[in-house]
Structures are given as C-alpha cells and as structure tokens.
Simulated assay, not measured.
Amino acid sequence: MIESVTKTSALSGINGLESLSSSFSTRGVTTEGTTPGTMTGETFMSALSNVATEAANNLKQAEQTSFDGLMGKANTREVVDAVMQAEQSLQTAIAFRDKIVNAYLEITKMQI
C-alpha cells in the first residue's frame, strides 16, 4: 500500500516533465533540399525538449532501480549511481529553467 502511494507520487512529478517536453515542437528543421536562409539542424525548442525528456527518463530509471534495490534485485552501488545521475539531470533541468526565467524577466524590463 505505501509502496504504491510513493511510486504514484514520484511518477506524477516525472509526468509533469514529460508533458513539458511534449509541448515543445520541432518545426522549422529541414535538412534535405534546403535553400539559403532556411533553418538547418536542431532548433532551440527541440534541444530543450531533448533535455526535458532525458531528465524524465533518468528520473524514471533511478526510481525503478531504487525499487529494485528495495526488493533485493539491485545492489547498493547501482542504486546510488542511478540516483546520482537522476539528481544531476534534475539539477541541470532546474538550471535551464532558472536561466530561461531570468532571460524572460530581463526582456520584460527592457524599454521599447
């Protein structure tokens, strides 16, 4: 009972990251038959989407490894490595968010 409640609450935060990443679009990316002046390569939105998706996947993997450790299927080293990787991904996502918010606030302060 407690395990299912904990797992559900942890997954709700991860689902928020997934919905954020799915809201980004990758339009404007063209590679074949491009003409001068058209966009090529990865867009900023798709890069942010990739970061959010990777962070969500790392959090899911760490959560699954933690549950495997509780059940005795994974050793302590694997659990610690997975949790540390998830923490690093989460800190990176938070840093991106903070930079984007700060940039937005700076733009709103500009006089037109």
Rank of each mutant, 00 (worst) to 15 (best):
S22E: 11
T26G: 15
V51H: 00
N15L: 12
A10N: 00
L105M: 12
V5R: 10
M1K: 13
T76M: 07
S49G: 11
D68Q: 15
T8E: 10
V29E: 07
G69P: 01
M110E: 11
K7N: 15
G69H: 01
S23H: 02
L20C: 01
A74C: 11
E42H: 10
S22H: 04
A62D: 12
Q91L: 04
E106W: 10
N15A: 06
R97V: 05
K109Q: 06
M84H: 14
M45P: 06
A103S: 13
Q85R: 10
Q111D: 14
F24G: 05
T30R: 09
R97C: 03
T8S: 06
L11I: 03
T65F: 04
S4H: 11
G13K: 04
E18C: 13
I2F: 09
A93W: 10
V80W: 08
A62R: 05
E87C: 13
L20P: 02
T26F: 13
V5T: 07
E54K: 11
R77Y: 08
N58G: 11
I2V: 13
G72P: 00
K99D: 13
E32R: 14
A55N: 12
F96I: 06
A47K: 10
R97Y: 11
T26K: 09
I14F: 01
F96W: 15
T40K: 07
T8G: 06
V51E: 10
R97L: 10
N75P: 02
S12V: 12
S9G: 01
Y104I: 10
T43M: 01
V80I: 12
Q88V: 15
V29A: 14
K99H: 13
D98Y: 07
S49Y: 04
S9L: 04
F24P: 03
T30Y: 12
T6M: 15
M39V: 15
S25F: 14
F96Q: 01
S23R: 03
I100Q: 08
L70N: 14
S12A: 11
E87N: 14
G28Q: 03
V29D: 09
I112N: 06
Q61I: 13
E78D: 12
G13P: 01
Q85D: 09
I100M: 07
Q64C: 08
A10Q: 11
F24Q: 09
T53L: 03
K60M: 13
L105V: 15
L90S: 00
D68E: 09
V29F: 08
S23P: 05
A95Q: 12
N15R: 05
S19A: 06
I14K: 00
I112H: 03
S89I: 07
D68N: 12
S4G: 05
A95N: 02
M110F: 04
V29P: 02
M39E: 08
M110V: 06
V101D: 05
I2G: 10
T38Y: 12
G72Y: 04
S19P: 02
T76Q: 14
N102Q: 06
A103C: 10
F96T: 03
Q111R: 09
M71K: 08
M1G: 11
T92N: 08
